[in-house]
Amino acid sequence: MDACDRCGILTRMQPDGTVRIEVERSILQSADEAAAAIRALLSGRKIYALNLISSPGSGKTTLIEALLARFDGKGGVAVVEGDIETEIDAERIRKHGVQVRQINTHSACHIQPFRLLSVLREMDLSETRLLLVENVGNLVCPAEVSLGEDSRVVLLSVTEGDEKPLKYPLVFKTSDLLVITKTDLLPYVTFDVDRVRRAARAANPSVEIFEVSATTGAGMPALLDRIEALRAAKTA
């Protein structure tokens, strides 16, 4: 290994006359830099941020609505909705009287951190203590990119099947909270909650797992309490 006489970087001449440059850099470096900028923006303002990831229809928007009901009047909540097209989710959230922005990714399958960063810079976050980012419904690509969030939440509804952590391990490995949703439907579907728990723990031993039904309200208080505690720890 020789150091380049111009820049000092480690290089090596190959037999074919090309020069090998050793870089060892993350492929997602520019995305990681945008995520770091988001993290700094949120830390400076003491805002606690959640990145909500799931398949389409698992209950991300419903969880946001439950959080809005819980945090109503307890300090500002801001919401960023990510969808490939339409403002449907933003309009649904706007009815609750909170600040909401919609990111339409068009062909892209997840929110890119630089898009989120520019949206956050346009928002008035002076009163915000909790930021809820709803990613595009997809278990693959959103897992690959950090949005600078404090906690990543993956939702899995019981109608999707209990093999999801085995099929989409990265999202379960990188999530801090796993929320198993629609548990009121467990009598009607084949879904082994313990199998999901074991697989999720293998992917991430420190994952916190919640079982909820927004329809009956079962399990929701424990989840909302935990998110409130996490927010309080960040914003204290």
Partner: peptide, 11 residues
């Protein structure tokens, strides 16, 4: 879960 560039060969 690595996703990195190790090296590149250039002329």
């Amino acid at each position: 879960d690595s996703l990195s560039i190790l090296s590149l060969d250039v002329d």
